[in-house]
Amino acid sequence: MINLAIAGKPNCGKSTFFAAATMAPAEIANYPFTTIDANNGVAYVRVECACKSLGIENCPACQDGVRFIPIGLIDVAGLVEGAHTGRGLGNKFLDNLREADAIIHILDASGSTDAEGNPVEKGSHNPKQDIGFIESEMKMWVYGLIEKNWNKIQRSSQQKNYSIEDAVADQLAGLQITVNHVEEAVRITGINLKTCNEEELINFCGVLVQHAKPFIVIGNKADFAPAELLEELKKEDIKFTCAAGELALKKAAESGLINYIAGDGDFTINAPEKLTAP
């Protein structure tokens, strides 16, 4: 089972997204650093079951022709700029990413939280400013790990049948970074790890992170976002979501009030008499 980390600045809706995806309990509140310790749960990717094309009826492996593939989710503490230096809960956050195969970066598409995760007036913070900062923090974190152990890496690479790429990969093995990741980053950057300067090594670390820990960016609170912010974000490679809405639908389905399968475009009400007007 692959593991995905849910990351982002504080108070952007990470824990709501986690709860909606997993239905596992997570503390949700409108203030920074609500999440201190990582939450772990299992979510499911919705795919069409092969029973439809095979003409199999009453398939035991799906629900109404829909199959759900399990993936692990890790809801980690919020990240602020400078986390790689230990600012905020930085080191704790970055440690939580060790087991992740890829990272879901949650943005507050509504612009209702500032760069530190503090609540502000809707639309007053441009979420485009938050794109890329997690990758940057991870790049500098990986660079720090390599730079701190550079002499050891250089000495190790002098062994017979043991390259500097092997040495770097071994140093970063705890992050699930392999020699294949290192060699691919070397190929893309054209770097010579034995003779590179600081700038070249930092750039190499950025490429390495992109390949070892791929990112997808999610614009959360899209239902609450001003139209002009959504239009700006649509120009970026961003997917949109409303985690709070999905969580409400799942809870209503769980209680039997509605018929809804995660990912459906609509739902039906089972017991309208039990519903009250807002």
Score class of each variant (00 low, 15 high):
101 D>G: 15
84 H>S: 12
81 E>I: 01
108 D>E: 13
100 A>D: 07
96 N>Y: 11
102 A>L: 11
87 R>E: 09
108 D>C: 12
88 G>R: 05
109 A>Y: 02
103 I>S: 04
78 G>K: 04
106 I>Y: 07
109 A>C: 08
76 V>N: 01
98 R>Q: 11
86 G>E: 06
76 V>T: 15
88 G>A: 08
105 H>R: 10
102 A>P: 03
110 S>Y: 07
90 G>N: 11
97 L>P: 03
96 N>G: 06
111 G>L: 14
76 V>F: 03
109 A>P: 01
105 H>Y: 11
97 L>R: 00
79 L>C: 04
91 N>M: 08
111 G>F: 08
110 S>C: 10
80 V>C: 03
111 G>M: 13
87 R>C: 01
107 L>V: 14
87 R>H: 05
110 S>K: 07
79 L>G: 00
90 G>V: 10
96 N>R: 02
92 K>F: 04
107 L>Q: 13
79 L>T: 10
109 A>H: 03
93 F>G: 00
89 L>Y: 06
111 G>W: 07
104 I>H: 05
86 G>I: 13
107 L>I: 10
93 F>W: 07
101 D>N: 15
100 A>N: 06
110 S>H: 07
101 D>M: 10
83 A>W: 03
99 E>A: 15
107 L>T: 15
100 A>K: 01
98 R>I: 12
107 L>F: 13
85 T>S: 05
91 N>I: 14
91 N>Y: 09
78 G>I: 12
95 D>A: 14
98 R>H: 06
82 G>K: 11
111 G>K: 11
88 G>Q: 09
80 V>S: 01
81 E>H: 03
111 G>E: 06
78 G>D: 06
93 F>M: 08
102 A>F: 04
84 H>G: 04
109 A>V: 10
79 L>H: 02
88 G>N: 07
92 K>T: 11
105 H>S: 11
109 A>F: 03
88 G>W: 10
102 A>S: 14
94 L>H: 01
77 A>N: 05
83 A>L: 09
82 G>V: 09
82 G>C: 09
89 L>M: 14
93 F>Q: 00
102 A>C: 12
84 H>C: 05
76 V>W: 00
103 I>A: 12
85 T>Q: 12
105 H>T: 15
89 L>D: 03
79 L>V: 14
78 G>R: 06
95 D>I: 12
103 I>H: 04
90 G>R: 06
89 L>C: 05
110 S>Q: 11
77 A>F: 02
92 K>R: 15
83 A>G: 04
104 I>Y: 08
84 H>R: 08
98 R>Y: 10
98 R>P: 01
108 D>V: 15
109 A>N: 02
89 L>R: 15
105 H>E: 14
93 F>A: 01
79 L>E: 03
104 I>W: 07
84 H>E: 11
77 A>K: 01
100 A>L: 12
98 R>C: 08
89 L>V: 07
98 R>S: 08
101 D>S: 14
89 L>S: 01
78 G>P: 02
110 S>V: 13
78 G>M: 08
83 A>C: 05
102 A>H: 02
94 L>A: 10
109 A>L: 09
87 R>W: 02
